[in-house]
Design a protein around this nucleic acid. Structure first.
Lengths: 195, 195
DNA sequence: CCTACCGATCGGTAGG
DNA sequence: CCTACCGATCGGTAGG
């Protein structure tokens, strides 16, 4: 299906060069189509951008969230989510690194529907993570000195930094650093007051 | 001086919308100049982009590095550097958040002189930080379980995450989270085997 | 899905 | 610093 092929190019290009400079003419040329043949499926560039975000969110869910959904809620699921997340970077699911990270930086000062969609996706994902952190703490699997919000901040910071260093320096050592930092933060709580 | 005014607009716009979509015509219009009057100072858009990076690097040095250069090398200077860095975000020195972060994400998949300049600036800055971490460890002011590279990775991760959350969610709580994480990581080493 | 076209804007230059 | 212009490309549309 042409629409799917267009979206595959759009998410690949979007992860590398962003969705703003994404050009309908260029996608058309790369796929051997006319511009009308590309944009006809979406109606406007903005709708194409939104569809690309939707595809990328689904891809992220399939790669990172879904394979962890069978784990018991709490520390086990949280660890699996983080493993999947780093692995998703390592396997370069998108050629330019995490699509939603690239696009969130690109649109943070560009109000509109694309920004809203990306910010919403991020809010929902961070909310999921924070819920698992809280659950792990409630079960006594994780130290409670730090708030769920603080721990989630740090977890995402490590993943983002790995993505950034991979993209700018092509340094796979960043993945190692991220895994070490995450692992240290998610160390099982020492035996104390039960749980 | 016109050149300085152009660069002020270029760094401000660059931090918000990047240096790729930066348009000579738009800068000219905003400053009440002709396009020739803008580009004549630089020769080409690429040279304007490079000049903007240079200005932003100098600004970063003035705001973050310089006020810490009087501190004794090691933990004291490292803490001051990190305080200045977070404060630089808090004071919104650039209207779109950290210019060099925005531009590094934008150019990570765009080979050329701008990418090289930005990556070089980041390498030098991370090298400075890592040196202070190593110095603090050598003086026994910081635990040595983590390598200087690992600690530097985490420090930058916290600052980057704060910048990202500030830009995408306008959430000043991210600065608080970053400060707490940095402070915990840079806690003085407990008394042990001297130093 | 195509060709052919619209007005707008791009980076850059010529000539002053 | 200006006006006036170059060819290229942009998003989008008309008509088929």
């Amino acid at each position: 299906m042409t629409r799917a092929a267009v979206l595959e190019r759009a998410t690949a290009l979007g992860s590398r060069e962003g969705l703003v400079t994404l050009s309908i003419g260029r996608i058309a040329q790369e796929l051997g189509l006319s511009k009308g043949g590309v944009i006809g499926h979406f109606g406007s560039k903005e709708q194409l951008q939104l569809a690309a975000v939707e595809v990328a969110v689904a891809r992220f869910r399939d790669e990172v969230w879904a394979p962890a959904s069978g784990e018991p809620s709490g520390l086990a699921r949280l660890r699996t989510l983080m493993d999947n997340w780093i692995s998703y970077l390592e396997r370069r699911i998108f050629p330019g690194g995490c699509f939603l990270t690239a696009v969130s930086s690109e649109f943070d000062d560009r109000p509109g529907s694309v920004r809203d969609a990306v910010a919403g996706a991020w809010r929902r994902w961070l909310f999921v993570l924070e819920g698992e952190v809280a659950e792990a703490q409630a079960r006594g699997q994780l130290v409670s000195e730090l708030s769920p919000s603080q721990i989630t901040f740090q977890l995402h910071a490590f993943v983002s930094e790995a993505n950034w260093a991979m993209q700018l320096f092509r340094d796979p050592g960043a993945l190692t650093n991220a895994r070490a930092a995450i692992s240290a933060l998610l160390t099982e709580a020492p035996y104390q007051r039960g749980g």
